[in-house]
Design a protein around this nucleic acid. Structure first.
Lengths: 200, 200, 200, 200
DNA sequence: AATGAATGAGATTTCATTCAT
DNA sequence: TATGAATGAAATCTCATTCAT
């Protein structure tokens, strides 16, 4: 690769990124079906047909956008995960990072939530439950360790997920919609409350 | 009004109910935009035009359906609310009733959630926050009383809502989707965990 | 049914007929892909969406139009078929009727031919060969009888079909395109020539 | 031109040939409009833009491909035409060669036929009839000689064409589609039958 | 009041062609 | 000369809504 090929590569990446970004903005504001491909094309400043060079269909675009966002979130969590620390400390760390990430990236959060609660998300989750390689392994391991050490309630995993994520997601939603304003203190208290919900 | 007009009224109510029920079934399964008016008409066994005698538009139908479901939920909560009992006991009662109601009426729950997380729901909630007559008064009063009695954490109301409803909603979702199975014991434990999240 | 319902029925039949007729005219002139649904809608003086009340898709329209034309042709042949007459006489009758029909209905003929020689027609014919209930039974029987009576050559049926239909179709094509002009005498001579091709 | 330019020319010819061949394969299978330029480019292993260096447009490609095939067929006929032999013998020779050629090159035949029966072919034939330099001169001469010698029926030339080519084409079609299987004996009988159709 | 055929605006998607590299 | 990413016009098809019956 030399310096002259760079513009090509940049441009290619750019088009796809522009489309992804435009879709994210528009879908968060208008929903999946309130967002037409023409709107995406205009906002991304590409031809309508260009979208189909990068995404097979509107559905594929919606799905790939979700997957990209999910990867970003998971990467952020993995990055600083203090694996060797005690369960409680890891929990506090992970939940804090996650909540702060959602607050810092409200569009990501809104999109993920919208996707999750649509027919798209339901089938996605059904698929995930079947497959072994779940993103949630990082949490699963944490919970199982906590149960084994008797610091977390001995409830079914799915219940622990709901108890621990439910408040965080609800808070993030209210924040991104402007119904609540979270500062560092409130974030810390929220995370503590999430822990309180599952701690023995 | 005389007795002869009764059949007419019955019929009219019936048609409206059929439309509402058909919409609920279809939207839960296919989403707002995966459900066409033609599908609703067929399932409700009415003419396509008939829907428009009862609902001004598809959006109006979606909104009114939401409001009806919300009213049913709130009526159920109001009904047996032990207003004179201590805060904790009221909380446990209300949350148990709510969770059981969602489990007993999974379609109601799925619809409400889908609505809540769509652009429809966001504007609805913005409207509600502005108006004084909020359905959530029943909870607001409970929380304020709890704060005053120092049995509930002194956090902003919006945070308390998230902490207390988040786990419940997450659990109800997993249950209605078949990802978790809740019996009476687990319901009780869930509600306890919700309380743990906000109790001082 | 009373006289007042008549207009309804007429109208319904009319729309479908208008669409069929417009499609026939346009496809014969511009081909399958040179004919857009918008062109059909305009020529038929119906809304674009209306076509889809009568035909599931453009392909379905093309296929159904073919089937209708084929039925008309076959009905014409059946009608005056002198079953009890000698093979030669039946042959002369059927071929004459067919050629005259194609000359009288050049659009029908052009459409059928275009369909026959397109990918549509190939799969159609493959299906037909598999199924027993072939329109061509009328000809098959005639040929088999002729072979048995030793007035027709003892060749495979598919060859006899080609030998007997080939000249007729070629003539009809030239006539409908204006490359040849057939009068009654020439028609008779053509049919004789078709017979000459298969007679023993 | 020197020896060094040879590779270039070869390459250029190669690309054009690849495009022609790919188009032939694809159009025979999917039809004119079922075949996109992108499909051709991929199958020919050239860039999409490259096609336009050799052919002005898709229509031009379709037309040139037809002309190439027609030339090949005519060249084959010219090659061994026993001009000095009696009419009947020449006829038998030419028709046998033609039928065998179509059987040996089913793609050529299918393409020519598809073209012939499309709006492309109709205008092509109209043009040909106007111009004097018709490929059909070889047949025209043969028929006129036959008429003069009173061995061929005294019918209009266009009729003789239809009578003589119709069966051959019909047979070739059934063979290439797999609906009939022709061996040397059947080929000979077919050609005899073609002759029977026009002989006095 | 009830119907459902008809509508046409608008959605998704395709594809021949261009043009910067 | 060759490429293939980009384009946008145009195609097919859907569907909320209307309106004559």
């Amino acid at each position: 690769m030399n310096i002259h090929s760079s513009p090509n590569i940049m441009k290619k990446l750019d088009k796809r990124s522009e489309i992804i970004q435009a879709s994210l903005d528009l879908i968060v504001e208008h929903g999946f079906h309130g967002t037409s491909m023409a709107m995406v094309a205009e906002k991304a400043e590409v031809g309508a047909g260009t979208i189909y060079r990068y995404f097979e269909s509107k559905d594929a675009l919606i799905k790939e956008l979700y997957q990209e966002l999910e990867e970003k979130v998971m990467a952020t969590l993995w990055e600083g995960d203090p694996i060797s620390k005690p369960v409680r400390q890891r929990f506090i760390h992970l939940w804090t990072v996650l909540l702060k990430y959602f607050i810092a990236h409200p569009l990501y959060f809104r999109y993920i939530e919208q996707y999750y609660n649509s027919p798209y998300g339901v089938s996605l989750r059904k698929d995930k439950i079947l497959s072994k390689t779940d993103d949630r392994d990082i949490f699963k391991n944490l919970f199982e360790e906590g149960i084994a050490q008797q610091v977390i309630k001995g409830l079914p995993l799915s219940m622990l997920f709901s108890l621990a994520f439910g408040p965080l997601v609800a808070l993030a939603r209210d924040h991104t919609l402007g119904f609540a304003i979270l500062d560092d203190t409130l974030i810390a208290e929220t995370v503590e409350a999430c822990w309180d919900g599952i701690k023995r």
